[in-house]
Design a protein around this nucleic acid. Structure first.
Length: 298
DNA sequence: CCAAAAGAGACAGCAACCAT
DNA sequence: ATGGTTGCTGTCTCTTTTGG
């Protein structure tokens, strides 16, 4: 090794001699092959530079962008540069589908880990995949549908079955909680008329806490007025005009996206017909299949 | 029935990768 | 130092199972 370094420095001196100043492409290619012969493997960037006794700029001068990679390709090798292609969606989905077919049921994340499938769970849930495990069935179903992957028909049936059975029991259970909450909000009577929405909010919060609901402090960028058990959001609007109703509608929709149940609480509604119109809209568009939004007026 | 233990999942931090 | 994907690990939470 040490003699190598010495050699290189000798050559460097040689390179500075007139007439040899230009390192030619051919010399580099030759060096590359030499290295492979000598060490029986492909050199890494730095190793090559040292071995050839050149500065990285020389490479760039000859090859331009991604110089070393181009050189490697020219010598018939794959570039060392990391090929960070994300795992294609298809591969991920097929792995999932095959697991399900094999087991005859929807796999848990543990199976995936045990099989050593990639990307790992932690990779899966982050960019660029964003597949959290419980969402896997849904995403798989969507994929299979788009790709028309008939071979996974059984898996789709499994997904269908699980979402209707477990889905139901879950909503039934949470429905009860939701009902309780709705009743609690209904039973709340504001001390008196307030001028500011915020004051109502504080008061309602006290009321709910007294009823034994666990309120979450607003954290992060959450836009909820109140959040209960991470599942139920309460939106409070005082004396809304039309555009505020519209805004609230949008907020409700956003909450639903986060799979929350929402109570929209309207205080001091100026006119009955705007309120009625609002509730009608909510029922029509947001409470389409199952009831997740409750509108209450005080 | 309750309490403890196991299981599943969420999430964040850290590191590896390697040419540029 | 940086880029982007991925893996690994620790900690937290929530749910389900088990033991008594």
């Amino acid at each position: 090794m040490k003699s190598d370094v010495n050699l290189c420095s000798l050559k460097n001196i040689a390179c500075t001699l007139p007439g040899q100043r230009m390192t030619s492409k051919e010399t580099l290619l030759q060096k590359y092959e030499e290295y492979k012969k000598e060490f029986d493997r492909i050199p890494k960037y730095r190793e090559f530079l040292r071995f050839a006794g050149i500065h990285g700029r020389v490479l760039v001068k000859i090859y331009g962008e991604d110089a070393y990679s181009k050189l490697q390709m020219e010598c018939g090798d794959l570039a060392n540069k990391l090929n960070l292609e994300k795992t294609p969606l298809e591969k991920i989905m097929r792995q999932y589908g095959d697991l399900a077919l094999e087991a005859g049921k929807l796999p848990s994340s543990s199976v995936w880990i045990h099989q050593g499938l990639k990307p790992t769970i932690s990779g899966l849930e982050r960019s660029p995949h964003f597949i959290k495990w419980p969402e896997f069935p849904k995403k798989f179903a969507r994929w299979a549908e788009v790709e028309n992957a008939v071979e996974y028909k059984e898996v789709l049936e499994l997904i269908e079955a699980s979402s209707s059975s477990s889905g139901k029991s879950i909503t039934e259970k949470s429905d009860r909680e939701f009902e309780e909450l709705i009743n609690a909000v209904r039973s709340w009577i504001p001390d008196r008329r307030r001028n500011v929405e915020e004051t109502y909010k504080v008061e309602l919060r006290k009321h709910l806490e007294a009823k034994g609901f666990k309120l979450h402090e607003e954290f992060g960028e959450s836009n909820f007025d109140l959040l209960i058990r991470n599942k139920y959001a309460i939106e409070i609007k005082k004396a809304p005009n039309q555009s505020e109703y519209d805004r609230m509608f949008g907020q409700l929709a956003r909450h639903l996206q986060h799979q929350l149940h929402v109570i929209a609480l309207v205080l001091d509604a100026p006119t009955q017909d705007k309120f009625d119109n609002f509730t009608a809209l909510v029922d029509l568009y947001l409470n389409k299949n199952e009831k997740f939004v409750e509108v209450i007026k005080k």
